[in-house]
Design a binder for these strands. Structure first.
Length: 230
DNA sequence: GCGACAG
DNA sequence: ATCTTGTCGC
């Protein structure tokens, strides 16, 4: 099965699930030694009409956390949101923005899950097969799996298990705040995911800085686009 | 059958 | 995700 069928408009749930099951067999979990040079953060924001969205990619220097490049793409959204199939809704827009990049990031953070997914092929995992880069999934709310409640202090971590597999981790990024849910996208392992994610957790935000910057820009560009149309 | 359900 | 102000709490 060709993964490029993702560009089709009318895949059935069974067809999408078949694609995920095919991709699952090709996941490669491996440590990510050392530090990446450039990392990317990806996020989307939807317009009020619910027909369009803006996809944003922010490139940041890993060591200094300085933003080196930002690209975006505004277009029609062709797939409705169905839990478990977010990739089919968001990847088309993301890929168009990806083509506009001048930098080639070594690692990419997505707003959503990686293997923390019923078929182990969430947004971050699915995307990795198109871009061929290590990916990480960062979700703000629980999706699947069971886990013990992490301690209330910053840095507390617990594994998330689903059907006997460790599929991700819950991470308390600040004292007393709701935790985030992190998982392997592809071409990386969970310990590396936690290490690289915590590098972007500052003092102020609950969300890793690389993802937060993409999120902020996404809403800023939507506001700008709406203003220009008025 | 009922509830849950990334963004 | 998005619609939205004030307000409870540290």
């Amino acid at each position: 099965m060709n993964i490029n069928v993702i560009h089709s408009f009318d895949l059935s749930l069974d067809e999408m699930k078949a694609i995920q099951q095919s991709l699952r067999q090709q996941i490669q979990i491996t440590p990510y030694p050392g530090q990446p040079k450039d990392v990317a953060g990806v996020d989307l924001a939807y317009f009020p009409d619910d027909r369009r969205a803006v996809a944003v990619i922010v490139i940041m220097d890993y060591a200094t956390q300085q933003i080196k490049e930002t690209v975006y793409h505004i277009d029609e959204v062709v797939q409705e949101y169905v839990p478990g199939f977010l990739a089919f809704r968001e990847l088309p827009l993301f890929l168009k923005a990806w083509e506009k990049l001048h930098y080639e990031p070594d690692l990419v953070f997505f707003d959503g899950n990686g293997m923390l997914h019923p078929e182990r092929v969430g947004l971050a995992t699915h995307a990795s097969f198109f871009i061929g880069k290590p990916t990480i999934g960062i979700a703000k709310t629980h999706f699947i799996g069971e886990y013990p409640e992490p301690q209330k202090t910053q840095g507390s971590v617990e594994w998330i298990k689903d059907q006997g597999d460790v599929v991700g981790a819950v991470l308390r990024t600040q004292d007393g705040v709701k935790p985030i849910y992190v998982s392997v996208g592809n071409y990386i392992d969970l310990p590396s995911v936690l290490r690289l994610t915590q590098h972007f957790v500052g003092k102020e935000s609950r969300i890793p800085e690389i993802v937060r910057q993409a999120d902020l820009l996404t809403k800023q560009l939507r506001k700008q686009a709406l203003a220009e149309e008025a």
